[in-house]
């Protein structure tokens, strides 16, 4: 289970970082979203992975740590709000600047051509 969990987090982080380094706002937003999923899973794992852990005291010998769950809930809510803001901002930037490049202007034609052939 640990390996699978770690692989999931690693894969999500790698995809997120790759997408965040793209030049247009939409892939960047998706990349940030994936990164925040990875982070949320990671926080969840900081309480140690634990099967069939009890939540109520005095019912079992094996308890789950409740704090990471509270933390992850907070992180999800904040991440959600921030992503919503970023999406609106990206649309605003598309309208204001006339393109969806993060720098507000498309790169020089030479680079653009290379990007297209990829």
């Amino acid at each position: 289970m640990e390996t699978l969990f770690a692989l999931c987090i690693g894969f999500l982080t790698a995809c997120g970082v790759f997408l965040m380094l793209r030049g247009r706002t939409f892939p960047v937003v998706v990349g940030l979203t994936m990164l925040s999923y990875a982070v949320n899973l990671f926080i969840f794992a900081s309480g140690r992975l634990n099967l069939k852990g009890a939540v109520v005291l005095g019912t079992s010998d094996n308890y789950a740590d409740p704090l990471p769950q509270a933390l992850v809930l907070t992180a999800i809510v904040i991440g959600f709000a921030m992503t919503a803001f970023l999406v609106i901002l990206a649309i605003r930037a598309r309208a204001d600047l006339g393109n969806d490049h993060v720098d507000g202007s498309m790169p020089a034609p030479r680079h653009a051509k290379r990007e297209r052939t990829k």
Binding site: M20, T25, V28, L32, L35, S36, V39, N40, F42, I43, A45, S46, G47, R48, L67, P68, L71, A75, I78, G79, M82, T83, F85, L86, L89, A90, R92, A93, D96, L97, V102, D103, G104
Partner: peptide, 27 residues
């Protein structure tokens, strides 16, 4: 608008790193 896009993206990435650090320290 252009400055805000940069600022928001950078700070969101910063927040993700912040959370990772917190999770490691809590763990």
């Amino acid at each position: 608008t252009r400055a805000t896009v940069h600022y928001v993206i950078l700070n969101l990435t910063g927040s993700a790193v912040f959370l990772l650090a917190l999770a490691i320290l809590y763990g």
